[in-house]
Design a protein around this nucleic acid. Structure first.
Lengths: 111, 111
DNA sequence: CAGCATCCTCACAGATACTG
DNA sequence: CAGTATCTGTGAGGATGCTG
């Protein structure tokens, strides 16, 4: 009984580690809209992200198998990012949040 | 086109501010399981949370109208917390994450 | 173009002690 | 019981400059 909730909370942590942080949701959402994006495109789309945070976050998402990184060995370099199957599983969840956010922001502006 | 994504991302931020952080998801989830909980119950359920973080997080959730705080003026004090209508709207979302987390953790253990 | 390397800051969070 | 008050610290994130 209690154990189940503690287990749930542990699992919730596991999940939040994968989509939490300042940029993970944004990146996944942008990729879901554009299907495939280059590093520079992401950099422009996710405004005000530093290269450090963009690279770091992309690496984490790749480690967690949420995005795929395709590198083309050419000069100048070209790298494309896209959602993996697992990454796509998180889109409905983000969509839920976006829809909820729009609704709540609208409600707050009524008052 | 681009504007819509930027707007989405702004909204995503709005939403993440409300359910992000280390304890908000846990507290909402615990409240959804127990319906009504006292301060001490939450403290025991959310293991290793300090009184400072528990109080602070509860206040934030209350400010955002996700939980309701009912105080009984008696000695010793009794305070009960429960989800508001808006708070309940976030439960399907958290459930999605919990389910996804269980699935992914199981998959990772297979390898 | 797609990063890497450094240095730095501050907000989130932890620890501890106390109270109406 | 349900908090408040205070001090401390760690790491996520920011700023800047450089490179194959």
């Amino acid at each position: 009984m209690n154990k189940n909730i503690k287990k749930d909370i542990c699992v919730l942590d596991f999940a939040f580690q994968r989509i939490g942080g300042k940029y993970k949701g944004r990146i996944l959402w942008a990729l879901s809209k554009h299907t495939v994006m280059r590093y520079g495109e992401l950099s422009r789309e996710i405004s005000d992200i530093s290269t450090k945070m963009l690279t770091q976050t992309l690496r984490e998402l790749e480690m967690d198998n949420l995005i795929h990184r395709e590198m083309y060995p050419q000069v100048p370099p070209k790298v494309e990012y896209s959602l993996t199957k697992t990454g796509k599983e998180l889109i409905p969840f983000i969509k839920y949040l976006v829809d909820w956010g729009y609704k709540k922001m609208a409600e707050e502006n009524e008052n």
